[in-house]
Design a protein around this nucleic acid. Structure first.
Length: 875
RNA sequence: GGGAGAUUAGCGCAGUUGGUAGAGUACCUGCCUUACAAGCAGAGGGUCAUAGGUUCGAGUCCUAUAUCUCCCACCA
């Protein structure tokens, strides 16, 4: 028995348990090695263990679950691999915050104890994420759940690192890198965010060596002048042409530095003179390299100045700036200070300023990798939906620089490089060497750095399948099929997965990438932890059920478009689920009033044939739409099929049969109704799995999740068209009744002219009699020889029909109505005339279209004539 | 500075090869008709941001402009 009303909270967790117990989420091939279905694999973007999932994750995972459930029912050998990400820097920041509340720092704890904390953190939050995914109804294979730091994934990381190191793609060197003085670690370019900030442009006088005046330098960072190695001008700049090669005196330091020429300098900006500080600016680094200057480091890793800065030593860089500018002013070396807005580089995790610093780090050489990534797209091995995102991907790869992969953090994959403390030899090995390969010393220490968290993420498509081991999963499920993810991690993650999969596995890791839009709150702001407008999916699920949330996320949201989340939308969409539930109640009711019989497809009436035709069309369209990853439209199709075709029409059509006095008719009609309804449950299962499973179990002993997808008996063109005509007749009768203000409860007579109606139409009306009386309150259909003025006429696609005037009356209303109708028709006629009277249209437009317009035109003309006649009669 | 997206009914949105503007919700009218008032049946409501262009025909293609949003970026 179904519940009295739809109560999601009652059943969802029980249903989920049942699925899990019956191993419904596992690929068929786990049970049947010879399973013939094509493989369909999705790897879940592993959520960070930093906290809990938000609505954006819910959207992302609902989309994946939709695809997996759909493909599973379509007979594919489906595998969805879940997992979580250790999120090195993000998690470490969180743990440090938590420690701070206890009055602790990570140094006080020490590396080992700190890592213990981190693992505890993972237990807590990783676990919570899994619970959330389960509440949402996600159906990944939990037995294959992966964590970027678990044993197998550590193994993958070690192997890839060593392989790339051995092949020369990974190297160690001292270069200018982005350094976060707050997190005290190196960052990759992708981890730096630019925020516009109000600052100043300082014009500083650098005296010429020969005391012949000043050269004025404009800078946004005066404090870096201690690291200046030269000043640069554009070689074409007439103002300074004769100064090139001369020297200026670097103020305060009183150091002689040369004036050089470099194309990099823009004549029109500032004074056209740039101070060059290679150790603390990326452009300057390049300029310095071109002109063979040794970078001079002037800052410590905590952002304070070093001994190069004389009395400013140990001052924080911003403090130093203040004092330095003061001093320069006193020395009359500041020409002017202009307000200036500049993009400030900040850390994507702690949001504090990032400093370019010279540092010894590990890098991955990216040029060749980037080409692999670009090839994947250009060869058609990879498609990104929506396509416009492909440009973002391409642009990034085309401008890529070597990837700084080492981080001065503790939580992460420790770099497998070992140093001999005696001879300084470096070894990269899978396990710690027992002695130095050069001097045989046993005094060996591992590199203390860990890898960028995105290094392990980049291996996800094959690490989750068991790489480097030669596993069955890897052979069977790699490359995967569809990746569903968000736009903001295209660089961090998607591009790197493509590159490394191609490099390591020789294949593009997935053929399609579906990019979800951003989830916004009901005011249109991006949902994020920092703006504190995030919504916990669990809260919504507890209130409205997981199905309601899922439907709301998938319904009415264009592919890749941003999505505005609101509880109101859930309330609106939830009505659909209620509708599905209630139609199930109806089926239950009628089944209880008859004996059960098998579906006999020789006993289909025209209405049955119509609904099967509609079902067939719907399934076909959904198929195409899902293949194009247009889930929004697919859900739309399901929605209107279920609500409009099935609930509004078919259920009414079939009522005379399921309530028939003839027991056999009843039983047959019920069998058909049941079949159609169960197909609807199959259709909807990927969107709203819980309720459909719940209802399905009420009617069968099987589990819906494991059924094959909806399938129609077939398409019945002629019958279907006849029913379409009946529907338009019904609409016309309803409309006409209403326009004459006939009370809905009043039974009236439908009249047709024997001499003026085709046999076909007559037959159709005959078949529709029962339905018409039920749906339009027509008591009987009169066939008359002659129509007199006691009747009012209306035109339908089945021909002309009439009502008896004395049953509907009210001439004034009628006149109004007719005039209005004529107005409408005339407007449409005019529109059509602009086409069919246009020789260009007739000659150039497709023939079918011209024909269609012409016949429509004829129809409108006769309709208009008959209305005008009627009007005359009234007058 | 560069790039992308958005602009369609009061509201939040859909509209995939150019062919008479769509659903939901709200509002209005009438119905508690034995699945469902979280419902049913109807009605109204749109120069598809603006200006040009291509075309027999443009919400859809092209070119500008405006407003909003996002991404990228080292002009010191």
């Amino acid at each position: 028995m179904l519940d009295k009303s739809y109560e999601p909270q009652k059943n969802e967790s029980l249903i989920y348990k049942k699925w899990e117990e019956n191993k419904c989420f596992k690929p068929h091939s786990d049970f049947d090695k010879n399973f013939a279905g094509e493989n369909y694999t999705i790897i879940m973007p592993p959520p960070n263990i930093t906290g809990q999932l938000h609505i954006g994750h819910a959207l992302n995972n609902t989309t994946q679950d939709f695809l997996i459930r759909y493909k599973r029912m379509k007979g594919y050998n489906t595998l969805w691999i879940p997992g979580t990400d250790h999120a090195s820097i993000a998690t470490e920041v969180k743990i440090i915050e938590a420690l701070k509340k206890e009055g602790l720092t990570k140094e006080m704890l020490g590396r080992e104890k700190f890592l213990e904390r981190a693992w505890l953190w993972n237990d807590k939050y990783g676990g919570r994420i899994k619970t959330q995914l389960k509440s949402l109804g996600c159906s990944p294979d939990w037995d294959r759940c992966a964590f970027t730091m678990d044993e197998q994934r550590q193994k993958s990381v070690l192997h890839v690192f060593k392989k790339l190191y051995d092949e020369g793609y990974i190297y160690r060197g001292e270069k200018l890198i982005n350094w976060c003085p707050t997190c005290k670690t190196a960052l990759s370019d992708a981890e730096v965010e630019h925020v516009d900030e109000d600052s100043s442009l300082w014009y500083i006088r650098y005296p010429y060596e020969d005391n012949s005046g000043y050269l004025v330098v404009a800078t946004t960072r005066p404090e870096t002048m201690f690291g200046d190695v030269c000043v640069a001008v554009n070689p074409e700049d007439e103002r300074y042409k004769d100064k090139i090669g001369k020297n200026v005196i670097l103020p305060i330091k009183n150091k002689k530095i040369p004036i050089i020429a470099d194309d990099y300098v823009e004549k029109d900006f500032g004074t056209g003179v740039v101070k060059i500080t290679p150790a603390h600016d990326f452009n300057d680094y390049e300029v310095g390299k071109r002109h063979n200057f040794e970078p001079i480091k002037i800052m410590n890793l905590d952002g304070s100045m070093n001994e190069e800065c004389g009395k400013f030593n140990t001052l924080d860089r911003y403090e130093c700036r203040k004092k330095l500018v003061e001093e320069l002013k006193n020395l009359n070396l500041i020409e002017k200070i202009e307000p200036y807005r500049l993009p400030k580089a900040t850390c994507y995790r702690c949001h504090n300023a990032v400093e370019p610093m010279m540092s010894k780090q590990w890098f991955m050489s990216m040029q060749e990798m980037a080409n692999l990534g670009l090839d994947a797209l250009n060869n058609g091995e990879l498609e990104i939906v929506p396509n416009r995102v492909e440009k973002i991907y391409t642009h990034w790869l085309e401008n890529i620089k070597d990837w700084c992969i080492s981080r001065q953090l503790w939580w992460g994959h420790r770099i497998p490089a070992y140093y001999c403390k005696d001879c300084g030899n470096m070894m990269v090995e899978l396990t710690k060497p027992s002695k130095c390969s050069k001097c045989a010393s046993t005094n060996i220490e591992q590199d203390s750095d860990v890898l960028d968290t995105w290094f392990s993420s980049a291996l996800w498509p094959f690490s989750t399948l068991g790489y480097p081991d030669d596993t069955d999963d890897l052979k069977k499920f790699f490359p995967t099929s569809t990746l569903v993810t968000a736009q903001d991690i295209i660089f961090f993650w998607v591009a790197r997965m493509v590159m490394l999969s191609k490099k390591i596995m020789g294949k593009t890791p997935f053929s399609k990438v579906l990019i979800n839009g951003i989830v916004r709150d009901d005011e249109g702001k991006k949902m994020s932890k920092s703006s504190n407008n995030g919504v916990d999916p669990i809260e919504i699920i507890e209130k409205y059920g997981a199905d309601s949330l899922r439907l709301s996320l998938l319904f009415g949201n264009g592919t890749g478009n941003d999505f505005r989340f609101s509880e109101e939308k859930i309330l609106e969409d939830r009505k659909f689920i209620n509708k599905v539930f209630n139609s199930g109640k109806f089926l239950e009711l009628v089944l209880s009033q008859t004996y059960e019989t098998k579906l006999d497809d020789t006993k289909l009436n025209i209405f049955d044939k119509w609904i099967y035709t509609k079902l067939d069309e719907t399934i076909d369209e959904i198929n195409k739409l899902v293949d194009n990853l247009d889930i929004c439209q697919a859900v739309n199709k399901m929605y209107s099929f279920v609500w409009d075709d099935f609930c509004n029409y078919y259920l009414e059509f079939t009522k005379p049969y399921v309530y028939s006095d003839n027991q056999e008719t009843r039983a047959n009609a019920c069998a058909i109704l049941k079949d159609v309804y169960l197909n609807i449950l199959k259709l909807l299962h990927p969107i709203i799995p819980f309720i459909t499973e719940n209802i399905y179990s009420n009617f069968t002993n099987e589990m819906l999740i494991s059924q094959s997808y909806a399938k129609s008996i077939g398409t019945f063109e002629t019958e279907s068209q006849r029913v379409e005509k009946i529907i338009s007749l019904i609409q016309k009768i309803r409309e006409t009744r209403l326009s004459y203000n006939v009370a809905p409860s009043k039974k009236i007579t439908l009249v047709a002219n024997k001499n003026n109606i085709s046999d076909k139409s007559l037959k159709t009306v005959e078949e529709a009699k029962l339905v018409l009386s039920k749906m339009t309150n027509i008591e009987r259909v009169d066939m008359v020889e002659n129509i007199n003025s006691d009747c009012i006429k209306f035109v339908t696609e089945l021909g002309e029909f009439y009502f008896y005037k004395n049953e509907v009356v009210d001439t004034e209303k009628e006149r109004e109505k007719i005039n209005k109708d004529i107005e409408k028709i005339v407007a449409e006629i005019k529109l059509l005339e602009t086409r069919i009277l246009n020789p260009n249209f007739v000659s150039r437009a497709p023939k079918e279209l011209v024909e269609k317009d012409k016949s429509r035109y004829e129809f409108l003309l006769t309709s208009k004539n008959s209305l005008e006649e009627k009007l005359k009669e009234l007058n």
